[in-house]
Design a protein around this nucleic acid. Sequence first.
DNA 1: AATGAATGAGAATTCATTCAT
DNA 2: CATGAATGAATTCTCATTCAT
Lengths: 186, 186, 186, 186
Amino acid sequence: MAISKKQQLLDAALVLFVEQGISETSTASIAKHAGVATGTLFHHFANKKELVEALYLNLKEALVTDLALSGEIESSEQALVLWRKVITWGLTNPEKMAFFGIYYSSPWVESSFKSSVLNNVFSFLIAFIEKQKAVGAFINLPTDYIAMHIQQSLLNTVNYLIEHNLNANSDLVDLSFSTCLFGLQH
Amino acid sequence: MAISKKQQLLDAALVLFVEQGISETSTASIAKHAGVATGTLFHHFANKKELVEALYLNLKEALVTDLALSGEIESSEQALVLWRKVITWGLTNPEKMAFFGIYYSSPWVESSFKSSVLNNVFSFLIAFIEKQKAVGAFINLPTDYIAMHIQQSLLNTVNYLIEHNLNANSDLVDLSFSTCLFGLQH
Amino acid sequence: MAISKKQQLLDAALVLFVEQGISETSTASIAKHAGVATGTLFHHFANKKELVEALYLNLKEALVTDLALSGEIESSEQALVLWRKVITWGLTNPEKMAFFGIYYSSPWVESSFKSSVLNNVFSFLIAFIEKQKAVGAFINLPTDYIAMHIQQSLLNTVNYLIEHNLNANSDLVDLSFSTCLFGLQH
Amino acid sequence: MAISKKQQLLDAALVLFVEQGISETSTASIAKHAGVATGTLFHHFANKKELVEALYLNLKEALVTDLALSGEIESSEQALVLWRKVITWGLTNPEKMAFFGIYYSSPWVESSFKSSVLNNVFSFLIAFIEKQKAVGAFINLPTDYIAMHIQQSLLNTVNYLIEHNLNANSDLVDLSFSTCLFGLQH
DNA sequence: AATGAATGAGAATTCATTCAT
DNA sequence: CATGAATGAATTCTCATTCAT
C-alpha cells in the first residue's frame, strides 16, 4: 500500500469537492471514490468538517513545498519569478488551486477565519507587501487589502488560463503581473 | 398585501443564502422566514434551483434600476463616478452584493453560464473597456479578463469596507479605483 | 361550449388514469389536461375518490348505451353476437375498456364493492348464465365464478388484440368465444 | 438475527402492498412495519421501485421452490396435479398469490415487461402448451394468449376460493381445471 | 485499522383540498 | 360557476455519523 487510505480519501475529496461543491459531496461518495468503506473516513477524520480542514492544510503544505520558497522576495523581478511559479503550479494542479477558491468562499470556513485562509496560503506575500510599503513603493492601502487584491488576481489569472486552454507561456502571465502590480505602485 | 408572497420568499432567501450559504439553506427555512407555507415556495418556483436563479435575476434587475445608468461611460472621471456609485450601492445593499459573490462561485450555476454571471450584472463595464482599448488607453488584455479583474476589485473593495466597518467616504474607495484602473493603463 | 367542463374533466381523467394509474395521476394534472383550473375539479366532484367513481359510472353508462342491449340472450348464437359486439366496443374504446380493468383491481374500490364492479358492467351476462344453468347447458359452477370467468376472458381478449394490433375481424375473436364457452358446457 | 432486515422489509412490503395497494403504501410504513429505520430500506433498495421489483423476484423464486417442479408436464393428469398444487400454494400463501395479481396490473411494471411477468411466474406452462399444440390437442390459439388464459383462471380460482372461505378440497378446484382446459381442446 | 449495515433527523418536493376573489 | 394562489401534511429519498464485527 504505497499510498495511505487517509491520503486516498483526501485525494478523492479534492476531486469531488472541486467538481461538485463541498456541501454537494457526500462522505459516502468520497469513500467510494477512494475505494474504502464509509466507516474508514470517520476513522481518519472526526467528521466531514475536519476532513475539509485537513484537506485545506494538506494542500497549503503541498503548495509551499512545491514552490520551495527560499528566502524573502526583495525585488519586483523576484516577485515576477514567483508570480510565474505560482501560476505554473496552478496550471499543474488545477484542482488544488480551485479548492483554495471554493474553500475561501464557502460556509465551511468560519467567517472569522476566512480572511486568513488565503493569507496563510500566500503568506510569503505579506512580507513582500510590507517591505514595498516601507520603502514607499506601494500606495497607502492596508496590507490585507493588497494581499486580497494580489491573491484574487492570481486566482483569476489561473482560472482564465485554464478556461481558455492557455499555458504558462501565454503573454497573459506577465501582463497580469503588470496589471496587478503597477496599480499598486505610486 | 403590499408585498407579494413571491417577493417575500425572494427576500427571505437572499438573507438566508448570504448568512448560511445556498446549499446550507433549506427551502423549509426560507418559507418559514418568509412567513408562508412550504408548499407556497414550490407554487412560485418549480424547485430550489429556479428560486436561486430567479433571485439572481431579481437582484441584477435591482442593481441596474438603482444605478440608473444613463448613457455610456466616456471618461475615467465618469468611470470613477460609477465606481463610487457601485460601491455605495454595495454598502447600502450588502446582502445583495454578497449574493453576487456567492452565486458566482457556487455549484448552483452551470460552469458554462458562470462567466456570464458577473458580466451580466456589470454589463455596462464591457462597453467602457472596449472603448478604452480602442483608443489605446488600456493594455492589450482580453476584454473578459479585464471585466473579471474590475468586478473582483469592486467585490473585494465592498467586502473589505463592510468587514472593517468603513463607509463610502473612506479613502479606500478612490484608492481602490486607482489600483484597479492604473494597472490596466499603459 | 359544446362539451361541459365536467365532461372535459372526466375525459382527461380517463386518459391519464389509464396511462399512468389512478394514484399516480394528480388532480392538478387532470385539471390542466382538461384545460380548467384546479379548483374547478373540486367544484364538480367533492374529492378525487368521487371523481373516480363518477368516471366509472360514466363509462358503465356509455358501454350499456353503446351496446344497445335489447332483450335477453337466449342462445349461444346470440351470445356470440354479443361477444363480438363487446370486443368491437373494446377495440373502439380501448381506454374505457382498460379503465374497467384497472378500476376493478385498484385500491380505490372498497373490496366489498369489488366483486360487483365488473358484474355491474357486464350485468347482462348474469341472466344468460342463470338460464344456461337452468336448462342444464352449463356445468355446475357458481354463477359469480362463471361471470368472473367470462369477464376476464373478454378483458384478456381485448387486451391481447390491442397489444398485437389486431382488429375485430381476427380469428381470435370467435376462437376466444369458443375457448371461454365450451369449457363451461357439459 | 435469524431473519435479515432485508427479508423483514420484503415481508412487511408484501403484507402492506396486498392490503393497501403498492402506491398507497409509504416506504416509511414498510420500514415501521418491518421494525427497522426508514434509512435501512434505502440501504437495501435504491428506491421504492427496486423494492417492488425485488419483492416480485423474491416471490417468483418462492413459488418455483415451493412447487418443486421436477421435469415437464406430459399429460392432462399431470397438469391437473399441478393445477391442484398451484391452487393449494395460493391458498397457503394468499398474500403472495395476490401480489402477482396486483403487480401485474400496476403502473409499477413497464408495460413492455408486463406480458412476461406472469409468464415468468408460470413459465412451466409454456412448455406444456407448446407440447399440447404440437400433438394437436389444443386449438390454434397463440401460445401467449393461452398462457394468459390459464394464468388468469388460476388467479381467479384462488381469489374465488379465498373470498368464499373454501379450501383446496372444494369441487371448484377440479371443475375450474376442466373449464379452463376443455375450452382449449378440440 | 477497516468494514459496511444501520440509524433517524432532515431535505426537497408533491398533492389533495380550501377559499377569497 | 370558475379561478388559481395558498396550504401543510405526507412522501420519497439523502446523509453524516455510529458501532458491532
